[in-house]
Design a protein around this nucleic acid. Structure first.
Lengths: 216, 216
DNA sequence: ATCGCGTATGTAATTAGCTAA
DNA sequence: ATTAGCTAATTACATACGCGA
């Protein structure tokens, strides 16, 4: 509806012939068929290829494509020399070869991107599983720690109760033990415990059992 | 120049409009000039036989595109009715409108995919960070648990040493009275031990249970 | 600096295969 | 069974950018 018809038919034909120069079109057919009046191409396969109104054969032959693929596999870049060689070998215009490579690179890129996506997806999923596992482990450990703390409190109370007379050089512990112990050993809260039990040094963990000597 | 000499002008137009619908759409925008004659294309691909001339401008005008975008924003699918309406409003072949929508959907899809990728990437990264945090937390908790366990061992030894003379097994249970720990202790068959050490029997004991033998 | 070339990106159009009305 | 519309892949062209002689 917009203007469009300000060009004459000749001009349009000129444009057509410029746009679709024969070298890629292999043209043809020119079937004398009367008029494709109004008809939309009755697609279905054969019609076009055979002689229906097909103007051009834009599709590359299988051989051409496989050759191009082979070359692409060697190297995604296309130097002039290779381009010209391929073009003459395959009977194509160098321009076609160049365009094919451009498009092939684009395709390769998006496929690559898709691969990366699914790779990342896998990685992510397994990381999520790991994270869940760690979360439950943390919960379990916290619970255990809580229980252990309760045991310690119990033992301390017990000792405090019947150990007043005994030789424990650290009666002060008992007093300290009465302090409100942090109900839940905080994420980083060994401090409370250490204050209460100064005998549990930081590093004795490494060696393990020397402390036994103190009591044996 | 091409092979259409045996078709009348009308037929040519029909073919043209069928295969190259863009020819009766824009062209305009080309500053009025009836004949876009000779070269504009600098050169390079120049060859192009024939007559050089013109350019094609197959691009849709901005107005057309923005209209289409608007419509696409409303709804990605395109019903016939809308297609025809748009086509006549924009002076395009319905086929063009359909093609535009198809391509637009494809673009939209790949953009969407890209978004999803970066979203997943973000998510993944933050999950990895979380996982690291959890790992260190697990280590810390294990250490704390180990320390607590050692304290318990020490206290038990202490109690044993003290209590040989006057141990009141019931005293420890008085402590237990104030312990609201639910007795879900038996998971790992600690029954015998719990009788002796009625602490919250939990898995944490399992880790270093060997020492218990010393007292049994 | 300009030009030529290759590349990257975006868009238009075509084709083949599939599906549903 | 035909037909229209869709997706996915292809082919082609244009435009813009970078680089090197």
């Amino acid at each position: 509806m917009t203007s469009s018809m300000n060009l004459g038919v000749d001009d349009q034909m000129e444009l057509i012939s410029e746009y679709y120069p024969e070298f890629y079109t292999k043209m043809v057919t020119q079937q004398g068929e009367a008029k494709p009046r109004r008809r939309r191409r009755k697609k279905s396969k054969g019609e076009d290829g055979g002689g229906g109104g097909g103007f051009k054969k834009r599709k590359l032959s299988e051989e051409q494509v496989s050759m191009l693929e082979l070359s692409f596999g060697d190297e995604h870049k296309l130097e002039s020399e290779r381009k010209d060689r391929l073009a003459s070998e395959l009977g194509l215009d160098p321009r076609q070869v160049a365009v094919w490579f451009q498009n092939r690179r684009a395709r390769w890129k998006s496929k690559k991107l898709e691969e990366q996506y699914s790779k990342l997806k896998m990685e992510h999923d397994s990381t999520v599983v790991e994270k869940c596992r760690l979360e439950t482990e943390v919960l379990k450990l916290k619970e255990q720690l809580c229980d252990a703390e309760k045991d310690i409190q119990r033992l301390l109370l017990e000792r405090c109760a019947d150990g007043v007379s005994s030789n424990s050089p650290s009666t002060s512990f008992s007093v300290e033990a009465m302090d409100p112990v942090p109900p839940f050993l905080g994420e980083f809260g060994m401090d409370g415990i250490e204050n209460i039990f100064p005998f549990s040094g930081n590093n004795y963990v490494n060696q393990g059992m020397e402390w036994v000597n103190l009591y044996i």
